[in-house]
Every structure is written in C-alpha cells, then in structure tokens.
C-alpha cells in the first residue's frame, strides 16, 4: 500500500510538469496580452513595449517558461496583474474561502445524496424512487446562476432569512482570521457571533454549489445499490439468514461505495468549475471568482499559478479515492 502511494505521488511530477507546459502555452495563446488589457484604449505601441519588457514578455518563450518553472518550484508564481499582489498571497486569501465552500457543498451532497440514492434503490419502482429520479434530473439540469439568483431572491430578498452575498457582514470586518477559513477561525477563537455569521453566509452558496453533485451522487448511489442488490453474494447473505439490516450494512453499502467514491473524486473538478459561477453570483471572494476575472485581464501569473494548484489538488484527491479503493476492496490491495 505504501509503495502504491509513493508511486502515485512520484507520478504527480510528470503530470504536473506536462500540465505546466500546456498551461503556459494556453495562457499565451489567448488573443491580446496583459499589457493591452492593462492599458486598454490608451495603449500605444511604445507603452505596450515598455510593460512587456517590465513583465519579461519580450523574452523568447523558453526563457519565459524557464523563469516561470524556476520560481514555481520555490512556490512563487509572480505577481497578479489584476490586484498587484503576489499570486501566492492571493491564494492564501482565496483558497480557504473556496475550500470552505466546496467542502460544505460536498458534505451536503454526500449526506443527502447517498441516503436518497439508497432509499430510491430499496424502493425501486415505487413513486418514491421515481420522485428521486426526476428530482435529481432537475438538479442536474438546472442552471447554476438561475438557481443562485432564485435562492437569493426567495431566502435573502423576500424572506430575509439568510444574507444575500459575501462571506461576512460588514460589522464582522474586525474579526481575526488566522487561517482564512472563517468557520474554523470562529471556532478556534471561540467567537460565537462570527461562527453563526460565517455559517449563515455559507448556506445559500453551498446549497447552490451542492445541487449538481448531490443529484449525480444520488443517481450513482441508486444505480450502484441496485447493482449490488442483484449480486449473488447478497442472495448468499440472505440464505445464511442474515437480517435485512445486517445485509444492508455489511454486504450492500460497502460495495456500492466504490462507484460513489469515484464519483465524489471526480466531482471535485465539477465543484471547481461550479465555484466560478456560484462565487460570482454570491460575490463570494474565492478562487473561482478571481480566476474567472483573470481571464479577461490576461493575468498570466494568476492563471498559471491557480490552475496548477487546482490541478495538483485534483490529482491528490483522486489519489485519495484510489487509496480508498484499496481500503474497500481487497482485490485491489493485492495487486
């Protein structure tokens, strides 16, 4: 198992290297340049030239790449053009926000999606099953921004139960944030009002972001449980005289978790792309919103740094999924 993990971690090196090359070229293939984006209509060839020299964009591509790589290895991704702050500093501010949002969304999706899928499978063919299937179809197809504005309209504007946008109320501005994870910060500092404020601000964005993964997880769980229920070994378990509850707990759910955990790993990518829309709709200062803004402003440094880190996270999370396979299925372990 340890060898497997080490091998997979070593594999991360060529994956990230390849990605860094592709990313580097893609960013530069975007029409226009950072200098143009910065200067806008006032751009003159001389000024553009000036800024390009300042940014090192006048150098040949391989020189630029080498500089980027050299710094990236020291975890330095340069300076963001949109905010004029080091990219790493922006990461420190924004990743906690998005991770907090993503984890909350994933928790909602898993804690609701798996039971819904399971009960739909157990009551296969009944109205409950059909309801869950159609509801999940709605969940998958509903546009994220539409859902976001609907939720804001109903729960913030009309009912006033939840905050409309942002991560915290203005009166919380002086609250300390040692980690940047607002919920965690509030718990660590024992700040009750800040905790409830942070949680309330998470509800609507997290529900919005959770909708699609929830629907997909519910569907996959349902299909997986239906599959397992038809397996010979479940019949064997029944033939032994096990109670229905034990069969569910020991023989069905564990097997059904394999495809579900794969899905959860892949959902991470979906969460990231969903976060762009969600964060924009809720003015939630996270990674998604920042990266989305980096594209029109041709913020090379931000795009390269953030996407590389997101990709590394994606690979690591899927490594965790693969490790969980080994824990769940002994046949994977032996190989």
């Amino acid at each position: 198992m340890l060898r497997f993990i080490v091998r997979r971690l070593l594999l991360l090196i060529p994956v990230l290297w390849g990605l860094s090359v592709a990313l580097f070229l893609w960013v530069r293939a975007l029409p226009g340049s950072p200098a143009q984006a910065l200067l806008g209509e006032r751009a003159t060839p001389e000024k553009i030239r000036q800024i390009e020299i300042a940014l090192g964009l006048d150098q040949p591509l391989y020189v630029q790449y080498w500089r980027f790589l050299e710094k990236a290895l020291r975890f330095d991704f340069g300076t963001s053009i949109q905010s004029s702050r080091p990219v790493v500093e922006e990461m420190g501010r924004r990743f906690p926000a998005t991770i907090e949002l993503g984890v909350t969304a994933l928790l909602i999706a898993v804690l609701i999606g798996i039971p819904v899928g399971y009960f739909a499978a157990r009551r296969h063919g009944t109205w409950l099953d059909q309801l869950s299937v159609s509801a999940s179809l709605v969940g998958i197809t509903i546009p994220v921004f539409f859902l976001a504005y609907m939720l804001r309209y109903v729960f913030a504007n009309q009912l006033g139960w939840l905050p409309n946008t942002g991560r915290q109320e203005a009166r919380m501005l002086d609250v300390e944030h040692p980690t940047g994870f607002y919920v965690l910060d509030a718990i660590v500092t024992g700040n009750g009002p800040a905790l409830s404020d942070a949680l309330l601000h998470l509800v609507l964005p997290a529900v919005t972001l959770a909708t699609i993964p929830l629907a997909i997880i519910a569907r996959i769980t349902r299909a997986a449980v239906l599959d397992v229920l038809n397996e010979d070994y479940v019949r064997t378990a029944e033939a032994k005289g096990l109670t229905a509850r034990t069969i569910t707990r020991r023989h069905v759910l564990r097997n059904a978790m394999l495809p579900v955990s794969t899905t959860i790993g892949l959902q991470f990518g979906l969460l990231m792309s969903g976060a762009i829309l969600t964060e924009t709709a809720f003015a939630f200062e996270g990674v998604g919103k920042f990266v989305a803004q980096a594209i029109p402003s041709r913020d090379y440094a931000t795009l390269q740094g953030f996407i590389l880190v997101i990709a590394a996270l994606f690979v690591l999370i899927n490594l965790l999924v693969d490790i969980s396979y080994g824990l769940i299925d002994p046949r994977v372990r032996v190989r």
């Binding site: 010979d232 070994y233 019949r235 064997t236 032994k240 020991r250 097997n255 299925d329």
Partner: peptide, 24 residues
C-alpha cells in the same frame, strides 16, 4: 423463515466466486 435459513436449511450456489462476498 429467516431464523430457519442458514440454520435448519442451507444452500450451496452454482458459482462460488460470485456467491461469496469479495470484500470479506
């Protein structure tokens, strides 16, 4: 009937690979 299953009456199935749980 469940209480009798496995105790008073038991069954051997056709394909022992698919009939045994792969994870235990």
């Amino acid at each position: 009937v469940r209480a009798l299953r496995g105790k008073k009456m038991a069954m051997i199935f056709q394909d022992p690979l698919s009939s045994m749980h792969p994870y235990y």
